[in-house]
Amino acid sequence: MRLLEQFGIILTLTLIVEIIRAVVPLPIPASVYGLILMLVLLKTKIIPLASVKHAGKILLETMPLMFIPAAVGLLNSWTVVKTIVLPLLVVVAISTVTVMVISGRVTQMVIHIDQRRGDAK
């Protein structure tokens, strides 16, 4: 399908979920509604993969660029950040390691339990 049509589909979905977000009183970003909706539409083949794949790839590849403007906003919030920068870094370090270890160990534990059950049968 032509690139323009692919972008058209993705942007139409975006518009729909922006409306959903505005109507539903939950703290859920429009992008998450969109992600789930897109997954359902792909799975049910209402939207064939080929009709969004190329445009999707372009958007995903350029995604890091889209974070830049928000991050540069640090310039404006620097006065706030300055006062908590050290605790902030401590929180990042401790919680990142914690999440990595716990999610990895728990996943591995479940796999091993399942394997043992499989062997016992």
Partner: peptide
């Protein structure tokens, strides 16, 4: 650039 973030995030459904 920021405007493109929502459509791009929706596309995370494709690799998923």
């Amino acid at each position: 650039l920021s405007y493109l973030l929502t459509p791009a995030t929706i596309c995370l459904a494709i690799p998923l």
